[in-house]
Design a protein around this nucleic acid. Sequence first.
DNA 1: CAGAATGTGTGCGATAATCGCACTTTATGT
DNA 2: ACATAAAGTGCGATTATCGCACACATTCTG
Lengths: 248, 248
Amino acid sequence: MTQKNSASTFAKGLKVLSCFETGRRDLTMAEVSRLTGFDRATTRRLCLTLEDSGYLQKEDRAFRLTPKILAMAGGYLTANDFGRSVQPVLNQFAEAFEGEIALAMRDGDRAIYIARSATSSARISFGFSIGSTLPLLPTAVGQMLLARGLASDVDLDLARLIPEKLTEATDMDLTSIRQKIERAASQGYAFVRNEFEMGAAGIAVPVGNIGASPAVLATTASINQFDKAAEFDRALDILRRAAMNLRL
Amino acid sequence: MTQKNSASTFAKGLKVLSCFETGRRDLTMAEVSRLTGFDRATTRRLCLTLEDSGYLQKEDRAFRLTPKILAMAGGYLTANDFGRSVQPVLNQFAEAFEGEIALAMRDGDRAIYIARSATSSARISFGFSIGSTLPLLPTAVGQMLLARGLASDVDLDLARLIPEKLTEATDMDLTSIRQKIERAASQGYAFVRNEFEMGAAGIAVPVGNIGASPAVLATTASINQFDKAAEFDRALDILRRAAMNLRL
DNA sequence: CAGAATGTGTGCGATAATCGCACTTTATGT
DNA sequence: ACATAAAGTGCGATTATCGCACACATTCTG
């Protein structure tokens, strides 16, 4: 059905492209067709258009993203001047942590890393990088982003977002989650352990806005690194000082 | 004109999207129309489709990329497992340098950073990050990538690529550039000073392939950091050891 | 402040692009 | 060798798209 002010073929194509967002290594046209629900002939034309345009390359019968998509991401980062204004600050404070620090914001129903720095002693595990996406409910980053919203928006979000049991410790109770978000708002930080990844803990603090969108600063580490109150306090202090140093 | 196996509306839309790759902060529909050559009504529909799909947001009358494009980049990085296999090694060797180290590959007629690490003491200047693109001819990264190609491909490339005078010192002579590429191939590293950015020097070494595409590892610094032969040799040695440590 | 320049929004007829179906061919798996 | 899955193809029907011209809105300039 034709919709004013829109190009449905283009929208379909973007949906095909978004199939590659999850990090699935190789996708055949048949798989893309199943994921999108589009007719196989339609999917074929759209995939080949992405290949012609340089965003996908085909190997055997499977497609994968090319690094051209990184250039687009680079366009976003350059437009915001993050390479100069944000990255050096994150590098400095990652060293203060001897760990990892990341700047994140919300994109739809998820959190997304938009800048990150880590030292060689940082915990590897999940393999976070620019562009990594995290769920909102079971992560410190997500809870702090939700906490930065209006209470009425939190109500709407909690009515829509479905908790997903990622570990044995993932909190599936919306009332409990809401309390954590409210506590994050009142105490100025979110702290989550074992809910997103077993053995991992995260702390997130508010940091200002990117455009009109709230951003948060976070660090993740092994849970035992924050066991002692002094270690936790030190990490929180460094995060807060990093937040004050960031010019967003 | 209809072309088999393709969707021209989608291709047009991707061309609109690519207008935002350059890091231009805000683009109006009129500007996008001029850049692409498309009719203004066509451009309007395509821009609004990108907005509907979450890739662009509009502020006043200008559009800008949203962080959603970073998630796509994250899909590329996750598919290649760079967050786990590459980033920790780069972090380790950035510390050895007390500077910057980056993994790059070729994308069309440019080099593109696909992973990067820097310490707080690294030189800021250009603000490189994942997704940063560099020209092939006046950069160590570019010359090393060209050097990794077949001699016949280098011939074709040098016949097509047009040198661009970025600094007073940019080499515009194709014969001279060809010699530098050949030297890079024979000595196993490329070294460039002041040609891309005044005051900046870069060293690049080969590092293996990503998929079927050659990759290189590079560091950049102030030119005076490599003035002494001992400093240069140390940097080259660290780069080579980093290259050996990377599992691509 | 008026006029010029630029950007945006809209309607609509023509037509080109797209769709999706069914069939064929190729590749892979058992 | 056969079954299954994926890809490739042709084509008629239909829809989506295009681009033009005009109107409206915003910004710039003298």
